[in-house]
Amino acid sequence: MPLSPKVLIVDDEERFRTTLGKLLTVKGLQVDNVGSAREALALLGENNYDVILLDVKMPEMSGVEALAEIKKINSGIEVIILTGHASVDVAMEIMKLGGYDYLLKPCPVEELLAKIETAYDRKREREGRGPKL
């Protein structure tokens, strides 16, 4: 049985997160999506996500702030930042906070999928379970 990563999409653009969710689901991933960082943090306690796809520019709490909180709750989760805004400063901050990668919107689903899989492998390796074959 192939192992599939459990993914959480956090983006305030509803159509973006729902369609991305459908696209990743048909690729065999388990996907949840929420519209704000707060909702995401609330979900972390009861779910063990492998990878979180996180938007940067959101009302109330930005993705960068959320990243720090996520790492506090569970440092093992890999976080990929998805943003429409390219900025070296933000990228640097994300890496410093332990973000795994940084992708610029718009990006093809295949590219995102590849990143999710590498992030997932890395997480499994670290947990001593070896990469997915």
Binding site: E13, R15, F16, T19, L20, L23, G84, H85, L104, K105, P106, C107, P108, V109
Partner: peptide, 9 residues
């Protein structure tokens, strides 16, 4: 970029 990302998806 946000609307373009949605269009692509």
């Amino acid at each position: 970029n946000n609307p373009i990302a949605i269009i692509g998806q």
